[in-house]
Design a protein around this nucleic acid. Structure first.
Lengths: 212, 212
DNA sequence: TAAAACTTTTACCATATGGTAAGAAAATAC
DNA sequence: GTATTTTCTTACCATATGGTAAAAGTTTTA
């Protein structure tokens, strides 16, 4: 009985492992080629399985793309709900927020790129999720920052544009890494670059909210 | 004689006009669909000519894409070489820089999106141009800001990351406009939004360089 | 060990799309 | 007014690609 369970678990674990590998592969391809430019063949090759086998796991490209986007959104929504501790010191909260956002760019650059392609293209698939998931959280976070301003904890700022700027400034280190590598004369952005970026962005934001 | 010239001029002017219309159409399609997702048929339709006629003007898709990118780069390089007046007041120069960059996002959102798609995809076509055109200017501009710091005209900042942040913060209003429209509950970003964005970004940057 | 379920491969196809070839039509030159 | 050049259309095609159908192979169940 326990043996049966173990076997069943093991098999489905294998499947999950392969699905995860496929999604990772798909993410890489979608990140560099966009949705239309990505072929099932190329994704399969990247995942080191046959195209037909890929289709066995994900019967069509749209579905695979949606799964990739959903995984991305899940990660981001989870890691970026940190403004929900409004009792904390604003400076610390924002510092951590920038830090976390930048860490996502560093650790999930492909996710960031897929997301960017999607939104730039008009978010045909993600629009609904942005409305139902991102928007409510955005509004809560805006409210939190507004309260900080009202309580005089930080200098007056427009929270909406503050968030837009932080998002843009952090994501750019994933999305536009190629441009930076060229301008900084480096084959790859390394940990030092990200640390410098964090210092620069944090400093800017801190000065903006009057916490320097 | 002058009539001949006029006719000749007029004809070639027509051609240039149509080519410009095609490029504009291509830009729209490339912006929303990326390179691979854009079809010659769709571009032709957008330009209101037949696909075969489009091919008469631009014999292949790669060529058309390169032309679009070149036009974009030309506009940007021209408008963004404003740090070359180092004698001017840093505050004013940077203020104008942010203003101009944001104006480009407002006036050429499609250009910005095509550029973004390209760079996110690894800049397969633009890489050479970035090295030969953007990099030298970037290094000059970095040097200028460094001089300001050395002369004590502004607070110490890392010019490279300052530029990355300004670029990201301004371009995001073109590239991620859909996301913002959702979050701000607006069908379209309008002039007020851009003015607010400019105020917010400028304020942040001004505070960052200690000019507030 | 035989059946059942799951996984992978082989064979194939319909459609979309970038592009060629060549002729018709229109504008321009002489 | 005819020749020539330029522009546009019609007909067509080769290839790439997402996907179907079904058989073969492998693992799990009982």
């Amino acid at each position: 009985m326990s043996e049966t369970k173990r076997k069943t678990r093991k098999k489905s674990a294998n499947r999950e492992l392969l699905e995860a590998r496929i999604i990772r592969a798909a993410e890489i391809v979608f990140a560099t080629k966009g949705f239309s430019g990505s072929t099932m063949d190329r994704i399969a090759e990247t995942a080191k399985i046959s195209k037909q086998n890929l289709i066995y796991y994900f019967p069509n490209k749209d579905l695979l793309y949606k799964r990739v986007l959903q995984e991305i959104l899940d990660i981001w929504m989870e890691k970026l709900s940190m403004l929900e501790s409004p009792t904390q010191n604003p400076e610390e909260v924002i510092r951590r927020y920038v830090h976390e956002k930048l860490r996502l760019s560093r650790e999930y650059p492909n996710s960031s790129k897929v997301f960017a392609h999607e939104v730039i293209s008009g978010a045909p698939v993600l629009k609904a999720h942005l409305i139902s998931q991102l928007k409510p959280q955005f509004e809560r976070d805006v409210a939190v920052v507004n309260q900080w301003v009202e309580r005089g904890l930080i200098k007056p700022v427009d929270p909406r544009h503050l968030f837009f700027t932080i998002w843009a400034a952090t994501q750019t280190y994933a999305d536009f890494s190629v441009q930076m590598e060229i301008l900084l004369d480096k084959p790859q952005l390394d940990d030092d670059d990200f640390d410098e970026a964090e210092a620069a962005i944090t400093q800017m934001v801190m000065r903006a909210i009057g916490a320097d």
